[in-house]
């Protein structure tokens, strides 16, 4: 009996490879679609003809999804995160001066370092500097309305701008967007790619916005609303708003990440 026992053992049980950590394979946490707006959201009319109707095909993360473009300070210019100065021609732009700051985190709570954050917005009157925007509010000659930043080693980013204004748009006859800033974030892998919008605490247009209310989860919606952050304001200069952005969690330990150069 004793002599036979080893022969019954699965030879794989004796393999020399050590157990890998449960969160160590580098893939991303499955996306929780219940906190995102559905593709087809009839209250936001443009989504009706632009939403896939077949099921998405679920794909285990391969090397194509856990990798993504790497950016560095060489990609940016010195004024890229200062929207008050990066398009100024003969003075400062009109509007409430604000600083927006926060961290890019993943769902494990780790900061996402050295990742590119891009942002764009309307001017203080709610007008975009875009060839297709015909709203009657005037263009501000000193305001471009876009910028970008690279997060630091802890995932922190900040930029300075003027608070955007609300504006009307064609959905219902009387639809208005709450003041908002668009954000584009990369993360460390292409499967973390995210575009979203930041809103401002206290804006009465938030609960009636057909785009914002496509989000089915109240808490997820609230997380898009940046609180006023008096601790970070600059006295006699700028108010501040705090906006943390959470990307999908990565199944990789912090130190492995660092070794990989992420």
């Amino acid at each position: 009996m004793n002599a036979q026992a080893p022969a019954l053992r699965d030879p794989r049980l004796n393999r020399p490879e050590p157990l890998t950590p449960p969160l160590g394979d580098g893939g991303f946490f499955q996306r929780d679609r219940a906190i995102h707006p559905p593709a087809h959201a009839p209250g936001y009319k443009s989504s009706v003809l632009r939403s896939p109707r077949q099921s998405l095909l679920s794909l285990e993360n391969s090397i194509s999804e856990i990798t993504g473009p790497v950016f560095g300070h060489n990609d940016l210019g010195p004024l890229d995160n200062d929207l008050i100065r990066n398009y100024a021609k003969d003075g400062d732009p009109i509007g409430e001066r604000i600083v927006v700051h926060g961290r890019v985190l993943d769902e494990t709570g780790r900061g996402v370092p050295n990742t590119l954050v891009e942002f764009w917005q309307a001017n203080a009157g709610g007008r975009y500097r875009h060839r297709k925007d015909t709203y009657l509010a005037p263009i501000d000659p000193n305001f471009g309305g876009c910028g970008r930043a690279l997060t630091d080693d802890t995932g922190y980013y900040y930029f300075r701008t003027v608070k955007p204004g609300p504006y009307p748009w064609r959905n219902y006859v009387n639809s208005w967007r709450p003041a908002h800033i668009h954000f584009s974030v990369f993360g460390s892998g292409f499967a973390q790619r995210l575009i979203t919008q930041m809103y401002f605490e206290g804006d009465p247009l938030i609960p009636v916005c057909p785009i914002l209310t496509t989000i089915p989860d109240k808490d997820a919606l609230d997380r898009l609303v940046a609180p006023l952050d008096l601790n970070a304001s600059t006295p006699f200069d700028s108010l501040a708003y705090r906006f943390d952005i959470v990307l999908r969690g990565q199944r990789s330990t912090y130190f492995e990440n660092r070794t990989a150069g992420n």
Partner: peptide
């Protein structure tokens, strides 16, 4: 765990 930030158009 934290929750991912919701997407917007």
């Amino acid at each position: 765990y934290l929750k991912e930030t919701a997407s917007q158009t």
